[in-house]
Design a protein around this nucleic acid. Structure first.
Lengths: 286, 286
DNA sequence: ATAATGATGTAATTTTGTAACATTCCGGTA
DNA sequence: TACCGGAATGTTACAAAATTACATCATTAT
């Protein structure tokens, strides 16, 4: 129903489209506003394809037909979010670059959403729900993600720890056992320390899960890999959106574990929340 | 061009309309959403008028014709609460809840994007760019955000540190000086330790910036507050999207500082990137 | 090399919107 | 009241657009 991200969806699906459909997509992405005002014939001509191809394109994206598609497209244009990745320029000012960063992040999420590794998530949730001990490893930016994961999983009744010190990582990796789950987070999946630690952990009989890019060295050492696209970040001053995706995956995993544990966990979570009350000033309204 | 008030325009003009046009207006006002999906024939029948009457009605309101009118109508309907959060249900399975989480996150970002505190960001960037020392404070989930910020700001030639230990926070807060910037991250803005640390830091003459909810106790202690909406998170098992927004704000700030420093910083960033090469296995393609 | 499958285009059909024209309705005047 | 002028609405016919069904072409596997 709500398709505020139609354009991102299209640009995310671009590589998977058939030749003629891709042509249509390109024309639409180039000037979506004009597209909403064009007839199917005009659009088909602009894309260099036949009219039914345009129609098929529309249906592929959930529309009932061309007019319906135009309607959705028009609606999606109202929202301030821009679809394509817009690089931050040196000449940008405060009015422009924050919006770009938000847009890029949104696009990264929408893109990731399109290709969610569902079965890997399910598998990881199974492992995580049964773990007697949980260890999250990440370096650099991924260390922050690991820390976040630690906080989230702490809520279940499982011992959790995070390490970002390479030496500690190795030490902990050798201390693994069959009931332990080692969780590695790495954008590239090529960080030496992590790959080695994963191999060591695996030898102890522990379960190794990784959140990294497909077919990476790290993935090869894992029992279960949640694969994320290793998007390019060419510009030095364009921050990585990948860690945001990683964090939402962490959310997904904790949610999965919560759902698996079922209602019986809720009182426990409520107790944790309650215990935080004393650390806060009362809110204004109260 | 932008007719986000089309419906009210119509209802305002109602008394001045001719009989048949009034009928059309009534039908449209009654169920605008259906109207956008109807053909001119259906709408004419529903209003009990002829098709050209509908067409004339459309032109009267500035549209080029019926299709154009529908487009404008559709756009005008988008405004307001268009982003529904879909709560995760206990009955959800792995095919459904991951998507919901991504959607919710995207919605949070889009919403935040619409109300970006631009001037506060600009101000914060000014402070951060001039800082001789940077300290990030956050507890719980916000500790992960602080850690992320630390990694990001480390790239500039400034000493950065993060603390999540309350005692260390207090100690560091008292050690502040005029050239220091203390950056506090808190969703609620009511965490006692943080508020107190902020007050202490402020007394030392240091700059206090906070990333928190508007009008909170923490905000009151800050020289500069980047205000974020304190969204409700009622369900225990629905992870918070707020920290994602916080992270993108961190991205925004680092970008802002980078832009402020200008091109001269790029070689330095390149050097950092290069220095990481040795820690990685070569990628497959190379 | 060829059959089978899927992608794309062509042509015919149906639906939809619009313009030109016809009719009706209403207010004013003899 | 009858009649006229002009505006408002409807009818009809046409043009444009969209969709379906079908044919052709390309691609892959055997």
């Amino acid at each position: 129903m709500d398709d505020s991200t139609l354009l991102s969806t299209i640009s995310a699906a671009l590589p998977k489209l058939k030749k003629s459909e891709a042509k249509v997509a390109k024309v639409i992405l180039e000037d979506p506003d004009t597209a909403t005002r064009s007839s199917i014939a005009v659009l088909a001509a602009a894309a260099g394809v036949s009219e039914p191809s345009v129609n098929r394109f529309c249906k592929r994206f959930g529309a009932g037909g061309f007019p319906d598609f135009k309607l959705r497209l028009a609606k999606s244009l109202v929202s301030g979010v821009r679809y394509m990745s817009r690089a931050v320029e040196m000449s940008d000012d405060v009015e422009t670059y924050p919006g770009k960063l938000f847009d890029n992040t949104v696009n990264a999420l929408v893109q990731a959403r399109e290709t969610l590794p569902t079965s890997a998530i399910a598998e990881a949730v199974d492992y995580l729900a049964q773990a007697k001990r949980l260890l999250f490893f990440g370096l650099g930016t991924s260390a922050a993600v690991a820390k976040d994961a630690e906080h989230k999983f702490f809520r279940f009744n499982v011992p959790v720890s995070t390490y970002e010190d390479p030496l500690m990582m190795r030490m902990m990796a050798t201390s693994g056992g069959v009931a332990d789950v080692f969780f590695f987070i790495s954008h590239t999946g090529r960080t030496k320390v992590l790959v080695e630690a994963a191999a060591m952990a695996r030898e102890t009989g522990a379960i190794v899960i990784s959140l990294t890019s497909a077919n990476s060295a790290l993935a090869k050492q894992s029992h279960c890999t949640i694969e994320l696209a290793e998007s390019e970040n060419t510009e030095e001053y364009l921050p990585m959106t990948s860690r945001i995706v990683q964090l939402v995956i962490i959310d997904t995993l904790t949610t999965g574990v919560t759902l698996k544990h079922g209602e019986k966990l809720l009182p426990h979570l409520a107790r944790i929340k309650e215990s935080l009350q004393d650390t806060r000033f009362p809110s204004e309204e109260e």
